[in-house]
């Protein structure tokens, strides 16, 4: 407490995108999914989050998205303390994070353009900016020429590119990819990772990739955070995939 009883605000580090401080998340009466982990990701970093099934990766993502609140500790994303955040502020906060899912989650009744524009509509982007932003995002992922195509006419790799464009179009400072190559063949997997790397370098977007893909993790020489049984067992710059045994 300060001199006049005011709560002293913790000084914000403007260079930090994500900070987890002694975070524990327990579900009812079970073993904690995350057990006192501390992780800091700087703005503009590219980080792999690696771990086996049940390691706590999903909980990690849900905490970052504020789908869950930590049982203990603090989760701060882009300067916002998510544990203290009111429900009504969640939508605006989530606009800081572009998300890419393993199963693409595209709207199959709409074409490529509409899928990407969907994210713009949600943030109520002005109509005049929408076309420009969608075209730019599709250009970045190399699908500008296929904007009229139905998503069902695209290959798996192309569908994931549309998902990346949708995550990018609102220009979020953080992009979170949850097993983005899980449904792709090695060639397409590699292309998607190259695309994410390009976005990180050119746009300075902070990128977190949750993955099982050992080859990619080992080849890309990025920071690797390994979670096992709810604990960070390794956090290495230019790290590699650590096997369970």
């Amino acid at each position: 407490m300060g001199l006049f009883g005011k709560k002293k605000k913790k000084k914000k580090d403007n260079n930090v995108a994500i900070m987890m401080e002694n975070v524990t998340k327990s579900y009812s009466k079970g073993v904690p999914a995350l057990d006192g982990i501390s992780v800091t990701v700087k703005k503009g970093e590219f980080v792999f989050i690696v771990g086996d099934s049940g390691s706590g990766k999903s909980t990690f993502i849900k905490l970052l998205m504020r789908e869950l609140k930590p049982t203990k500790g603090r989760v701060v994303v882009q300067g916002e303390d998510l544990g203290a955040m009111k429900n009504r502020k969640i939508p605006k906060f989530r606009r800081n994070i572009g998300i890419v899912f393993q199963d693409f989650r595209l709207l199959n009744d709409r074409n490529v353009y509409e899928n990407v524009a969907f994210a713009q509509r949600i943030v109520q982007a002005p109509a005049k900016d929408m076309k420009k932003n969608v075209t730019n995002a599709l250009t970045v992922v190399g699908l500008a020429g296929k904007y009229k195509a139905k998503t069902s006419q695209l290959s798996g790799g192309e569908q994931q590119r549309v998902a990346v464009a949708r995550a990018l179009v609102n220009n979020p400072p953080i992009l979170l990819a949850d097993e983005p190559t899980g449904n792709l063949d090695p060639k397409n997997s590699w292309e998607i990772m190259q695309l994410l790397d390009k976005i990180n370098r050119e746009r300075k977007t902070t990128i977190l990739v949750v993955t099982h893909n050992r080859e990619i993790v080992n080849a890309m020489k990025k920071r690797v955070i390994t979670i096992r049984k709810g604990i960070v067992i390794s956090d290495e710059e230019e790290g590699g995939y650590i096997d369970e045994d």
Partner: peptide, 11 residues
């Protein structure tokens, strides 16, 4: 998807 992207309850 809407929820993840940041759609409001109202939207």
């Amino acid at each position: 998807i809407m929820s993840a992207i940041g759609a409001t309850n109202f939207f």
